[in-house]
Amino acid sequence: SADYSSLTVVQLKDLLTKRNLSVGGLKNELVQRLIKDDEESKGE
């Protein structure tokens, strides 16, 4: 998976916004949300 932890919070929020995901929470939560979304989209 992508190394989201190396991105800035601003970059993470931009990715979340593009996916229509919540941008609330700490950086670690944003990273986990993106990883979870990646895993769910692979399952389709």
Rank of each mutant, 00 (worst) to 15 (best):
V31D: 01
K27F: 08
D14Y: 14
E39P: 03
K36G: 06
G24N: 15
V9W: 06
G43R: 14
L34G: 00
S1H: 13
K18H: 08
S22I: 06
K27P: 06
L7M: 14
T8S: 11
K42A: 11
V9I: 14
K42R: 13
Q32R: 08
E40T: 11
S6G: 09
K36V: 07
V23I: 12
R19M: 03
G43M: 13
L16W: 00
E40K: 13
N28W: 15
V10T: 14
L15I: 09
G24W: 12
L12T: 00
G25S: 01
Q32C: 10
D37S: 11
K13E: 06
K27R: 09
Q11Y: 04
G24Q: 15
V31E: 05
T8E: 05
E44P: 13
D37W: 13
R33T: 04
V9M: 12
D3H: 12
D37M: 05
V23N: 07
D3I: 10
L26I: 09
S5D: 11
T17Y: 11
L26F: 09
L30F: 02
D3Y: 15
E44M: 14
T8I: 02
R19P: 02
L12P: 00
A2R: 14
S41M: 12
N20R: 08
G24A: 15
N28F: 13
K13A: 05
G24K: 15
L21C: 04
S5K: 09
D14M: 13
N28V: 10
L7E: 01
L34C: 02
R19F: 03
S1Q: 13
L12K: 00
G43Y: 12
D38P: 01
Q11A: 07
S6Y: 08
L15K: 04
V10D: 15
G25N: 02
E40W: 09
L16V: 02
D14Q: 12
K36E: 11
S6A: 11
E39G: 07
V23P: 08
G43F: 12
A2S: 12
D37T: 04
L30G: 00
L16A: 04
N28G: 10
D38W: 04
D37E: 04
G43I: 13
R19V: 02
K36T: 09
L26H: 12
G43K: 14
G24D: 15
G25W: 02
G43L: 14
L16G: 00
L15S: 02
G25I: 01
A2P: 14
Q32G: 07
E40M: 13
K18S: 09
E40C: 11
D14P: 01
Q11C: 06
L34H: 01
V23W: 06
G25L: 02
K36H: 10
E40F: 09
N28R: 08
V23E: 06
S22D: 10
Y4C: 04
D3P: 10
R33E: 03
T17D: 07
V31G: 00
N20H: 10
S41L: 10
S1G: 12
L16N: 01
V9K: 06
L34T: 01
D38Y: 04
G25M: 01
S41K: 15
V31W: 03
E44A: 13
D3T: 09
L16H: 01
K36Y: 08
S22W: 08
R19I: 03
V10S: 15
D37I: 03
T8F: 03
L34F: 01
E29G: 03
L21S: 01
L16S: 02
L21K: 05
R19Q: 02
L12M: 02
V31L: 06
E44V: 14
V31P: 02
G43E: 11
I35Y: 07
N20D: 07
D37G: 05
D37R: 04
Q11I: 06
E39Q: 12
V31Y: 03
S6K: 14
R33S: 03
E29M: 06
S1Y: 14
K18M: 10
Y4L: 03
K27M: 06
S6W: 08
K13S: 05
Q32M: 11
E29I: 06
K42V: 10
Y4N: 00
T17V: 11
R19W: 03
K13V: 11
S5F: 14
V10M: 14
L12Y: 00
N28I: 10
L15E: 09
D14C: 12
S22F: 09
K42Y: 10
V9S: 05
R33K: 05
L30V: 01
S6D: 09
T17A: 15
E39H: 09
D14I: 14
E29V: 06
K36R: 11
K18T: 07
L30D: 01
G25R: 01
R33Q: 03
S41R: 15
K42S: 11
L7V: 01
E44K: 14
V31Q: 04
T17G: 08
D14N: 10
Q32P: 01
V31H: 02
L16D: 01
A2F: 15
L26W: 07
S6M: 11
E29Y: 02
K36W: 09
L15T: 03
K13N: 06
D14R: 12
R19Y: 03
L15Q: 05
E44I: 14
E44Y: 13
S5I: 08
T17W: 09
L26S: 15
D14W: 15
S22G: 08
L26D: 15
N28Q: 12
R33H: 03
A2K: 13
K18F: 08
L21G: 01
K42F: 10
Q11M: 07
S1A: 14
T8W: 02
L7W: 10
Q32S: 08
L15M: 08
L30K: 01
D37C: 06
N20W: 05
E40Q: 13
L34Q: 00
L15N: 02
Y4D: 00
L7N: 02
L26G: 15
L34E: 02
D38F: 04
N28H: 15
S6L: 12
S22E: 09
S6F: 08
Q11P: 00
S22V: 06
V23M: 06
A2I: 15
V10Y: 09
R19E: 02
Q32W: 08
D3K: 13
S5N: 14
Q11G: 04
E39V: 09
N20Y: 06
K27Q: 06
S1F: 14
L21A: 02
T17S: 14
T8M: 04
S6E: 09
N20M: 07
K13Q: 11
L21I: 04
